[in-house]
Design a protein around this nucleic acid. Structure first.
Length: 209
DNA sequence: AAATTACTCAACCGCGTTCTC
DNA sequence: AGAGAACGCGGTTGAGTAATT
């Protein structure tokens, strides 16, 4: 394995190494990581170079705390996809799968586990554009049993909720999502969707048929 | 002020998937 | 079609830092 090869440097990256890697990627583009250590003059394995670029050096990476909206979306996508960090990160512009995974493993999961939430229910209806869609369970990680137990895929996206005829009941901690929902998802579009994308396209991307 | 504990996050590792020949 | 190489992902680790005692 590359990481354990003798003579290959491990551990934290220096500023100089970062500059070498950035220069190399700018010159040759991303990909062909097996060539990067040689091209950049780095005594690092290809995996290390790739990871450093994707998680830290790549332009447009967003650093700092997750916003309420990002957390809300992360939680919902995790309910739908499970630990598919790369897919979740793909819907959080500027965030890496490592960021999402780290955040989830610390703050979010601990919070969710510690809170024995008391629900004050309000209702929301599955948007028309999503009705009639269903999950390809084998591909998105929703168990067949779970899917079978649900009246439709939408139910699986709604945590601890009651769903009747495409209507989900959410708890009070979903205030942010509630607001967004009442705006017919338009504001959430502007925050999370890249140009020309729609919510239905998101689910298509997630391999929902 | 020092020691201990808790937390964060960058990085490593192993393995499954995809690509290339 | 099969084998090996390369890629990508998720789980885990550990060093550094902050908070607490």
């Amino acid at each position: 394995m590359e990481g354990s090869s003798s003579g290959v440097r491990k551990g934290a990256w220096s500023k100089f190494e970062d500059e070498l890697l950035k220069a190399c990627v700018h010159l040759h583009g991303e990909g062909k990581w097996y060539l990067v250590p040689q091209r950049a003059g780095l005594n690092r394995c290809q995996k290390s170079c790739r990871l450093r670029w994707l998680n830290y050096l790549k332009p447009n990476i967003k650093r700092g705390d997750f916003s309420e909206d990002e957390i809300d979306l992360m939680i919902r996508l995790h309910k739908l996809l499970g630990n598919r960090w790369s897919l979740i990160a793909g819907r959080l512009p500027g965030r890496t799968s490592n960021d999402v995974k780290n955040y989830w493993n610390t703050y979010t999961r601990r919070k969710l586990h510690s809170q024995n939430r008391v629900k004050q229910s309000t209702s929301k209806t599955c948007p028309n554009l999503l009705q009639g869609e269903f999950i390809n369970t084998s591909k998105v990680g929703v168990s067949k049993e779970g899917a079978a137990a649900s009246s439709n895929w939408w139910e699986t996206l709604c945590d601890e909720n009651i769903t009747v005829n495409n209507t989900c009941f959410f708890g009070e901690e979903d205030a942010v999502f509630d607001e967004l929902w009442n705006q017919q998802l338009t504001s959430i579009d502007s925050h999370f969707l890249t140009e020309a994308e729609t919510w239905s396209q998101i689910f298509l991307d997630l391999e929902i048929n």
